[in-house]
Write a protein that binds this DNA or RNA. Sequence first.
DNA 1: AAGTGGTCTAGACCACATT
DNA 2: ATGTGGTCTAGACCACTTA
Lengths: 243, 243
Amino acid sequence: MEKVRFKPLYLQVKENIFERIVAGEWPPGTFMPNEFALAEQYGVSQGTLRKALEELTNEKHLIRYQGKGTTVADLNEGSTVFPFYNLCDKSNKRLYPATRALFHEIITPTQELAEKLDINISDKVVYTERLRPIDEDSSEIVVSEVVYIPVKHFKKDTLENLTELPIRLYAFYISEFAMRVSTASEEMSVTLANSQDAKCFNIQENTPLLLVKRTSLDIHSRIIEYRESKVNSEKYTYKVTIN
Amino acid sequence: MEKVRFKPLYLQVKENIFERIVAGEWPPGTFMPNEFALAEQYGVSQGTLRKALEELTNEKHLIRYQGKGTTVADLNEGSTVFPFYNLCDKSNKRLYPATRALFHEIITPTQELAEKLDINISDKVVYTERLRPIDEDSSEIVVSEVVYIPVKHFKKDTLENLTELPIRLYAFYISEFAMRVSTASEEMSVTLANSQDAKCFNIQENTPLLLVKRTSLDIHSRIIEYRESKVNSEKYTYKVTIN
DNA sequence: AAGTGGTCTAGACCACATT
DNA sequence: ATGTGGTCTAGACCACTTA
């Protein structure tokens, strides 16, 4: 009679643990209960619980230390596990640029944008522009990016009092939307610097730039945001590892 | 006394199974022995053997079908599992371009190339140029690429009689080098079309192109080849999914 | 020494595909 | 009905970290 498909125990456990992570029950840096304690909470064997933690570890949500315990991974960009910006300089050294928010506003999406965000054309979108200097207080810009976030993700209160968007958007999404970035799909192409780009990167107009279009999804494949980043590819490259 | 580090049973089993895969014991499309049979061969429990197969599956070397069996993944580009070329057209439809080999020769590497291939500056390198038309017999070129392969990987006989390199290099590497591409590291940047590029892509000179520099590694992180691909990014984009 | 995650086993049962 | 991979259990022991 049931139309619902068979769902293994360990997946149910995994999803519940993930919800508790997103809810902030174990803030990054603190340790979760050990395997046996969690297994008892759920009334499953250690092996089943371990399989849930294993998958969350593979998906970069947890970090496990043998002999110590299990912690929630931090989504700050400076952390070594942050997988969503892989910029290198010409000597192949990885960069962790800072963030400078320019402004934000609420816009009506084009047809194309609505499709990219998988929302209705009548839904509003928060639009923001940000610069990524190589370092705090540096004038050397590595990336210039625009971000689109569906308004419907926001709590009503937040939106009414929205004077500034936080610098760390991915951490903000967890507390505000209860959505944690799980995977991202990126399309690489090329664009030419317009006059604004030329000024901000301090390069000639029409210099080619690397254009990265990124859609970020949560663990249920719901779209969290869409982002377009222009990379000053004269000095920096964008690195990807495929498994 | 032993200086060798502790190596779990399932990893030893995994590595041996991988060697048998590379040796061609189970050609793609055929089924391997089932879990119990393999477990008995190695004298380990089903659970341990399963963990070995699980990792090989995660790494895209095996494909498992519930109720049917386990097969070796094909490295042909047309196959849905081929993970090393993710080209899309503007409507986001994935492309599987054909390959047209232009020529090859044996060269002496520059210092920079020797470093990229992790070889000695005195080691020789096979250099080849290839075009990727959108389709067999099409004049529409999607990608133009150059590939560098260390000569030391080749069998002596092969090299002496080398008139043509095969179209499917990754499959060739398995039979010739006993090396199977396991991961790849890609650097994205931008370049301008030179006169040769302009002719082959049928575009204006100095049009910006997407430049992908890829290093391919086997399961032991040994470098198999280094490749630079120029993508006609006016019409096509390069897509990457991050987990 | 005690506590944590990591490995390994042996056995039971379930879901899926084929015969 | 049979054979395959997938899930689940309970328990033992190993390796690493901290006290």
